[in-house]
Amino acid sequence: MSFFPGQDPEAGNAFQCDAIAHVIVPRSADLGDEFYVRRALPSVKTRMVGPFIFFDHFGPAEFRVGQGLDVRPHPHIGLATVSYLFDGEIMHRDSLGTEVPIRPGEINLMTAGRGIVHSERTRSELRTTGSPIHGLQMWVALPAAHEEMAPAFAHHEVDEFPMVRDDDMFGRVVIGSLYGKTSPVKTTHETMFANIAMRPGASLPIDADHEERALYLVDGTIDIAGDTFEPGRLLVFKPGDKITVKAVTDAQFVILGGATMDGPRHIWWNFVSSRKDRIEQAKADWKAGHFDKVPGDEIEFIPLPEK
């Protein structure tokens, strides 16, 4: 899912913490009725963080009665989509026959591989009452050797994820390993993603174990080495440097990253590949109707963009 054709985000000002390589200021778009989407990756100075090649933060917003999310069927290749919600619900359907709702704290990991089609919508029952929506949509690139793997889908419930906590901090290790805990989510490349909540005055070190790391602040204010940061910033850290995050207010953020990908990736619309010719093939296949249909959502689709 790509909510809007936004331009690349911009890098922010320099900060005194030497461990911060870049501060990414997301591009923002209002899709209507104050439903905002902020795009942090890809950016001009940071194309990827580990395997993460795309990062959208949508909401928080409230759908009124009769309204809802309607992302029509569309294709992907060469990536895995990672969907994570803070509030609300989204019904996922795909060309494998999957039909499953995702709710807060759960994760959907859809591996496109050689090609998959999916839709994301609000269930009709929620349209009769109105419903909130708030979450993240991320893409991770696949290693070159796995770009043409068979498509797959995995849904994981909240209680599957290991937790780290103390009196002033709560963390959920969603993908990969962090703080001695390892998630059961299977990936094709070293990937790390965790959701952290902290109370005012709490401190948390961020391990330097992963080659590439970033922090996206969802709510609240944090301090790193005397610099304060407000919500909606992606802090990209330098490799190998230890960092301590202090909560100035109640704060929630995600940590993401992993090993450096095995070479650059091309990205066009919903397609990611290490080869430009593969993206051209995918464009032709979608235009010609060669991708599989989504059972239960066969009528509508998003046409190939003209540019």
Score class of each variant (00 low, 15 high):
residue 4 F to G: 05
residue 19 A to V: 07
residue 20 I to F: 01
residue 28 S to P: 00
residue 34 E to L: 08
residue 34 E to Y: 07
residue 36 Y to S: 02
residue 37 V to K: 03
residue 41 L to M: 07
residue 42 P to W: 07
residue 44 V to T: 14
residue 44 V to K: 15
residue 52 F to G: 04
residue 65 V to D: 01
residue 65 V to W: 01
residue 67 Q to D: 13
residue 73 P to D: 12
residue 74 H to K: 07
residue 75 P to W: 10
residue 77 I to W: 10
residue 78 G to C: 10
residue 81 T to S: 15
residue 97 G to T: 06
residue 98 T to A: 11
residue 105 G to L: 11
residue 106 E to K: 02
residue 108 N to W: 09
residue 109 L to I: 15
residue 115 G to T: 08
residue 122 T to W: 03
residue 123 R to S: 13
residue 126 L to M: 06
residue 136 L to C: 04
residue 138 M to D: 05
residue 141 A to R: 02
residue 143 P to Q: 11
residue 144 A to S: 07
residue 149 M to Y: 03
residue 151 P to T: 06
residue 157 E to M: 12
residue 163 M to V: 15
residue 165 R to A: 15
residue 165 R to H: 14
residue 176 G to H: 07
residue 177 S to V: 00
residue 187 T to C: 05
residue 188 T to S: 09
residue 190 E to S: 05
residue 194 A to G: 05
residue 205 P to Q: 08
residue 208 A to Y: 05
residue 209 D to N: 10
residue 212 E to D: 08
residue 215 L to C: 13
residue 216 Y to H: 15
residue 216 Y to F: 15
residue 223 D to S: 14
residue 226 G to P: 05
residue 236 V to I: 12
residue 240 G to M: 06
residue 247 A to T: 08
residue 248 V to M: 10
residue 253 F to Y: 15
residue 256 L to I: 14
residue 256 L to H: 09
residue 264 P to K: 01
residue 266 H to S: 08
residue 270 N to R: 06
residue 270 N to E: 08
residue 271 F to L: 11
residue 273 S to D: 02
residue 274 S to W: 06
residue 282 A to K: 09
residue 287 K to D: 12
residue 295 P to W: 13
residue 298 E to C: 06
residue 303 P to A: 13
residue 306 E to D: 14
residue 307 K to S: 14
